[in-house]
Each structure stands twice: as structure tokens, then as C-alpha cells.
Amino acid sequence: MDKLAKLGRSSLDIFSGMGAALIMLLQSIIGKPQPAKSFPLFLRQMYVVGVQSMLIIIISGMFIGMVLGLQGYTILVDFGAEQALGPMVALSLLRELGPVVTALLFAGRAGSALTAEIGLMRATEQLSSLEMMAVDPLRRVVAPRFWAGFVSMPMLALMFTAVGIIGGYWVGVQWLGVDDGAFWSVMQASVDWRADVMNGVIKSLVFAFVVTWIALYKGYTAEPTSAGISSATTSTVVTGSLAVLGLDFVLTAIMFS
């Protein structure tokens, strides 16, 4: 009986948490748009969230592409099918690794920073102070960060994928000697713009929404102490990553089956 009550209580907690997170999100993004005021804020966050994550994304994409080229080659060459290296590298990056790895890196790089920043703003009473100045902190602080995360993650995923394919090309063609023409043409024959590229972008948009949302909510509701902020930051990375992996399965099942 106790266990049942415990289960009930924790599910209620989860649902009320999700409800509160939804309300926070709606309050921050719904309202009269004020482009003159919000665009500079958005731009600033694009810099913090997007530009500053670019380097780690590009380097990771390069290495993942190179590893795919190497691993793919050693497997495919046994079947005499090394010409399939192009589609293998491109499809795994476009459909899976591009959106997923970008989202995981983004949760660790930008998500944790967002949580810590907003948590600190709460702890140092900056959010309270905005409220007392009759400025809505949800519109002022949360909304530009949300949009910047939502827009920049798919952009980062596209870069990751493109760089990864180039990395696979270097290893496969320049180093291991797969035929240059075959690499690209077989790839082109099996990669479809809508089914592969666009579905990857859609995945990425979903991950961007979820990861940014989690990061902002965890920061906004963080306990205003150093222990509270550090646990909120950890929780952003853990919850964000699990949400990405879980959603990835659901989206893949819907899109590619």
C-alpha cells in the first residue's frame, strides 16, 4: 500500500513538474512580439549558445566522420562492398549521429551553461530584481535563450553532418583508397533530400526544443544555493541526454519504419 502511494506521489510530482515547465515556456514565448527590443537579446544569445558551441561541434563532427569512414571501410571491404562507404557514412550522420550527438554535446556545452546562468541569476536576486522593475524575467531572460537554443541546435547539427561526411571522405577516399567518384555518386543515389536530410533536421528541431526547454526550466527553478545550482546543472545534462535518446527512438520508429 505504501509502495502504491509512493508511486502515486512520484507520478503526481512528475506531472506537476511537467505542467509547471509547460506554463513557464508558454508564458515566456507567448505574448506581443517586440522585435526592436528582443532582437538584440536574441542575437546576443545566438552568440553565447550557438557561436560558442560551434568549435566543439565541428571538431566532434570531423572525428566522428573519420571514425565512421575507418570502421565502415574495415567492415565493408570484407564483403567487397567498400563503394557503399559513402551512403553508410552519409546516412548514419544524416539520420542519427548528426542530430543525436549534436543534441548530447549541446546539452553538455550550452544546456548546462544556460542552467547555471539562470540559476545564478535567481540566486543573486537578479530575476527578482527584474520583476520589481516591472520587467517580466520570462520574456526578458528565458525567451531569447529559448529561441536561440531552438534555432541554433539544428544549425549546429547541419554543420556537424556536413563536416562528418567530409571527415569520412578524407579517411575513406584520400587515405584508404575508395574510388572518389563512386563515393559521391553511390551516396547521391541512396540519400534522399526529403526522407533523409529533412527528417534529420526535424529530429534536430525536436531535440533542440526539448533540451533548451529542460535547461531553462532547471535553471529557473534551481534552488538558489551553490548546491542547488550544481545539482540543477547535472540534472539538465542527465535529463536532457536521456530525453534525446528516448525521443530519438520514437522519432526513428515514426520516420524510418
Binding site: 545564478l120 541569476m121 543573486t124 536576486e125 537578479q126 527578482s128 530584481s129 520583476e131 520589481m132 522593475m133 516591472a134 517580466d136
Partner: peptide, 19 residues
């Protein structure tokens, strides 16, 4: 409430300057 708050102001313990 936001309109009324424009007529009052609060000095927080930590100062709460935007960092």
C-alpha cells in the same frame, strides 16, 4: 501590478546588479 511596480523600487541585499 507591473504598472504599479514602476512607481516603487527595491534595493536587494546582494544589490542584484545584472552581471
Amino acid at each position: 501590478l507591473y504598472d504599479v511596480r514602476k512607481r516603487m523600487s527595491m534595493l536587494f541585499q546582494s544589490g542584484a546588479l545584472f552581471t
